[in-house]
Amino acid sequence: MTSSSRPLLDVVQVHKAFGGVEAVADCSFNVVEGEICGLIGPNGAGKSTAVGLIGGALRGDRGQVWFAEQDVTSWPAHRRARAGLLRTFQLSQEWPNLTVIENVLLAAPEQIGETLWSALSARRRMRRQEEENWGRAEHLLAVFGLTALRDQLAWTLSGGQKRLLELARIAMGRAKLALLDEPMAGVSPALRSSIISQIRDMQASGISFLLVEHDLGVVGELCSRVIVMAAGRVLTEGTLDEIRQHPEVAAAYLGVSR
């Protein structure tokens, strides 16, 4: 138990190449419990690949991922999710032909009726849990302002509404750590501030975040600490102000968006 000093998420020398492209090259960084940690970098820096490696959708070539003091490197995505490591995708990945509330309900952890056997035999317990989950899902829809859309199919939602739905799923899934891949992409400024406050509230309720985001305004508002990636490598990390001072960052990233 010497590892009790490990942060909630610890990425150690993780590497992933696609053919000749080193998308993530021996990256190490971490996210400590309770924080909202930013991950920024120019297009193609390897941010989404890093999220895929942490979430388990991608298998790294080498390196380790530690989550909640466990080495999850060899775990498949679903097992990491069950341990409380949830993610969103850069392109929203709702289940299009399921209703909004079904999308949220699906994220509920440890559902009794999720195997064939229990669906046939444990119907009463299943129903009781489902009613509980239903209540919680309706509550979350209200929180995220989606109540009116409850019974609509998810594909009918607008881009911003889909982002809200993804956050609602993360909350429903009782995440410990949420990896958000550009949650503000395609979101109007009005909705943007609402999503920011949602993320704050979720943080207050005990969820930690790794937030991939291009908009430094958003990053500045939410993140206490920012990691900068470029060309697959971690350039530097620190507060947003510290990072702005960094010469390489200015050249590689901020220079572009000046």
Binding site: G55, G56, A57, P76, A77, H78, R79, A81, R82, L86, R87, F89, Q93, E94, W95, P96, N97, L98, E102, L105, L106, A107, A108, P109, Q111, I112, G113, E114, T115, L116, S118, A119, R123, M126, E130, R169, G173
Partner: peptide
């Protein structure tokens, strides 16, 4: 059952289903 719902989620998007803990 939730089982049927999960199967439909696999149909609708396997990666997302895995990302929410479905084997």
């Amino acid at each position: 059952s939730p089982y049927g719902r999960t199967l439909r989620a696999i149909r609708e998007g396997r990666d997302a289903a895995a990302a929410f803990g479905k084997n």
